[in-house]
C-alpha cells in the first residue's frame, strides 16, 4: 500500500477511500488526448478495474497530446498500447481493452459492467450514445470536449442530475475534431486531468461533483466560467421509454452530378445522401471494387483525406483505376451548407 500513502493521508481518501478505489470500475471511451492523462492518473490512484476502449491506431500526429504513446507505438492499437504502458505504471490495476467502437448494440451491456464512464471521444454521435446508454444503465459519466483553445466539462446523469441532452437537446452536424481545428497538447491534458478528478470524487463520495454545472475553460485567455444547467425531464424520460436515440447526421454533398466514394467505416458521420455516393470502407475495397465506376471521375473521401489517399493507391495499383481524385481536406470540405 506504500504506493498510495500520499493520497491515503488525505482525510478525503484514507484507507476506506483507497478500498473504494480498489473496488471501482471505470470505463474510458476513447484513449486519446483526454483519455491518456485521465487513464494515467486513475491507474496511479489505484482504480481496481479500467476499461480502455478505442478502435483507432496511434498516429505520429497524436504524440503531442496523447501522452501514453511513443514513436515506436505508431500504427499499433491505442487500447493495447495503453494497457501495456499502464500495467507498467500500476500492475495492481486490471485492464480490459475494447478495440471496437461504442455502438448502439454494445453500449448498454459494456457500460453496465462499470461504475463510471469517462468520455474521451471526439464526436457528437458517441457523446449522445454514451449519454443515452448511461441513462438506461443508470451510471454517471464525465464529459469533456474541446474546440481549439476552449474546453467544456461536466458530470452527467449523476444521482439523477441533468444529462447531456438537457444542455444540448439537438445534435449538430458541426462535428469538428482536434484533427480538423488544431489544438495545443496541454488543453486536453488539463481537461482529461479534471475529468479524472471528477471520477475520483464520484468514487470516493467526497467534495462537490460538477453535476448540474457546465464548466467552460479558455486556456489561451486564462479564463473560466461555470454555467448552471437544469434537468429537462422530458429529454431523459424519452430515452428511458424508447431506448437509445441514434444520432444519424446526414448531409448533402456540393455536387449532385459528381460520383463520390466514401471509404470511412459505416458508423462514421456525417453520412452523405445521394444516388452517386458510394460507401465502401477501406477494408472492403478489395472485395467490392467492382461497384466503383471506372469511366468517369470519382472523388474519394474520408474524414481527413488520409485514408482516401491510401484507398486511391490500392485501387490504382491493384485494380487499375485512373479516374480517382482525393478530397484532400476530408468530408467537411465537400459538404453543402
Amino acid at each position: 500500500m506504500s504506493r498510495y500513502n500520499r493520497q491515503i493521508k488525505l482525510t478525503e481518501v484514507g484507507l476506506e477511500g483507497q478500498e473504494k478505489l480498489r473496488n471501482a470500475k471505470v470505463l474510458l471511451v476513447g484513449v486519446g488526448g483526454l483519455g491518456c492523462p485521465a487513464a494515467m492518473f486513475l491507474a496511479g490512484a489505484g482504480v481496481g478495474k479500467m476499461g480502455l476502449m478505442d478502435h483507432d491506431k496511434v498516429d505520429m500526429s497524436n504524440l503531442h497530446r496523447q501522452v501514453l504513446f511513443q514513436e515506436s507505438d505508431v500504427g499499433k492499437s491505442k487500447g493495447v498500447v495503453a494497457k501495456e504502458r499502464l500495467e507498467k505504471q500500476n500492475s495492481e490495476v486490471q485492464f480490459e481493452v475494447y478495440e471496437e467502437p461504442l455502438t448502439i448494440e454494445n453500449a448498454k451491456s459494456i457500460i453496465q459492467q462499470y461504475d463510471v464512464v469517462l468520455d474521451g471521444t471526439d464526436n457528437f454521435e458517441t457523446k449522445y450514445l454514451i449519454n443515452d446508454a448511461c441513462i438506461l444503465a443508470d451510471k454517471p459519466w464525465v464529459f469533456a470536449s474541446i474546440y481549439k483553445n476552449e474546453g467544456q466539462l461536466s458530470v452527467f446523469n449523476y444521482q439523477n442530475g441533468p444529462t447531456y441532452r438537457c444542455v444540448f437537446p439537438k445534435s449538430t452536424r458541426q462535428n469538428i475534431s482536434c484533427e480538423a481545428t488544431g489544438v495545443l497538447g496541454v488543453l486536453p491534458g488539463i481537461l482529461g486531468t479534471l475529468q479524472a478528478a471528477e471520477v475520483l470524487k464520484i468514487i470516493l463520495g467526497v467534495g462537490k461533483v460538477l453535476s448540474g454545472k457546465l464548466k467552460l475553460i479558455n486556456m489561451m485567455q486564462a479564463s473560466e466560467q461555470t454555467i448552471n444547467i437544469n434537468k429537462r425531464p422530458e429529454e431523459v424520460e424519452k430515452i428511458r421509454k424508447s431506448g437509445i436515440a441514434p444520432v444519424y447526421i446526414d448531409c448533402d454533398l456540393k455536387n449532385k452530378e459528381q460520383w463520390y466514394l466514401d471509404v470511412r467505416e459505416v458508423f462514421e458521420q456525417p453520412k452523405p445522401k445521394g444516388k452517386k455516393v458510394l460507401s465502401i470502407p477501406l477494408s472492403d475495397l478489395t472485395s467490392r471494387y467492382q461497384e466503383i465506376p471506372n469511366n468517369q471521375e470519382v472523388l474519394v473521401f474520408c474524414q481527413s483525406g488520409k485514408r482516401s489517399k491510401n484507398a486511391i493507391e490500392i485501387l490504382k495499383n491493384e485494380f487499375g483505376f485512373h479516374n480517382l481524385k482525393n478530397v484532400e481536406g476530408g468530408i467537411e470540405t465537400i459538404i453543402d451548407g
Partner: peptide, 10 residues
C-alpha cells in the same frame, strides 16, 4: 449573456 455552441473535440 453567454452563447454556447457544443464542442466535439477530444
Amino acid at each position: 449573456v453567454a452563447l454556447l455552441p457544443p464542442f466535439a473535440g477530444g
